[in-house]
């Protein structure tokens, strides 16, 4: 589904990704771990197509298409979803309205009819249950005055609404207490299928107790330096990132 080869990316004159390779197949959950500043969030942004970053070398293929000339909105319509580490506030725009605009634009791009109010509400009600989110929250300006947990739940709600092929969760565990973490993880797990894939970007092993990865990759200094199964995360938790540095 996703194939990244020799990816180099920088912001301004600072090189962040320096030859990264990663392959993700349908039905898989991958965890990307690494210390602060290793390039985890950059990788998530670059896959989503954020234009602040320059891709200087390498390629990203998604479902057989090379993404370099494809804008972020089109990537989203192709099925790439990014759950933001810091979801943005848009005053005066409710989550409901935001999602209605998104869902219908995606449908339109596939030549499908937009959902009418009744159909849309039905879809929303169904997805709300997944992350235990209340209608009242969805009627408020998106992310404005939301708690950390509400913001992250709202991200997963949007993921459920858009039903992406590839979901990238960028530090979704940050700022969550244990209850919120469970709710968010349950949502992500419920959405998992043989047709889609998930990339979890995280600092800590904690999240991986709930979202169990098939593969764990360690990202350091812009490259993946070690890959393994879920036990690698446990080993990291125990020994710290220095352990890998020393080995290299």
């Amino acid at each position: 589904m996703l194939e990244i080869k020799n990816l180099h990316a920088s912001i301004g004159n600072t090189k962040i990704l320096k030859g990264l390779d990663l392959t993700v197949n349908s039905g898989e959950v991958h965890a990307i771990m690494g210390p602060n500043g290793s390039g985890k969030s950059t990788l998530a942004s670059v896959i989503a197509g954020r234009e602040d970053y320059d891709v200087t070398d390498g390629e990203i293929n998604f479902q057989g298409n090379e993404l370099s000339d494809i804008g972020p909105d089109e990537r989203a319509r192709e099925g790439i979803f990014l759950a933001f580490q810091y979801p943005v506030e848009i005053p005066g725009v409710s989550t409901t309205n935001f999602m209605k605009t998104a869902v219908n634009q995606i449908r339109e791009s596939k030549g499908e009819k937009p959902l009418d109010a009744v159909e849309f509400l039905k879809l929303m009600k169904e997805k709300m249950k997944l992350v235990n989110i209340k209608q009242e929250l969805l009627s408020r300006s998106i992310n404005e005055g939301f708690s950390g947990g509400e913001k992250k739940r709202n991200e997963i709600f949007q993921m459920a609404m858009l039903d992406p092929k590839l979901s990238i969760l960028d530090e979704t565990d940050s700022g969550l207490d244990i209850d919120a973490l469970k709710i968010v993880s349950n949502g992500v797990n419920a959405l998992k299928s043989k047709e889609n894939a998930t990339v979890v970007v995280t600092h800590y092993q904690r999240l991986l107790d709930y979202i169990v990865p098939d593969f764990v990759h360690v990202l350091m200094d812009g490259k993946i330096v070690k890959s393994g199964d879920k036990n690698l995360a446990l080993e990291l938790e125990e020994k710290g990132y220095d352990w890998i540095k020393v080995k290299n």
Partner: peptide, 21 residues
């Protein structure tokens, strides 16, 4: 970018933000 990432194109994104404002 938040709007774009949800599949909303730039024109609709601005319309959405301005109307919200």
């Amino acid at each position: 970018f938040y709007c774009l990432q949800r599949g909303i194109d730039e024109e609709n994104a601005i319309a959405l933000i301005v109307n919200g404002y």
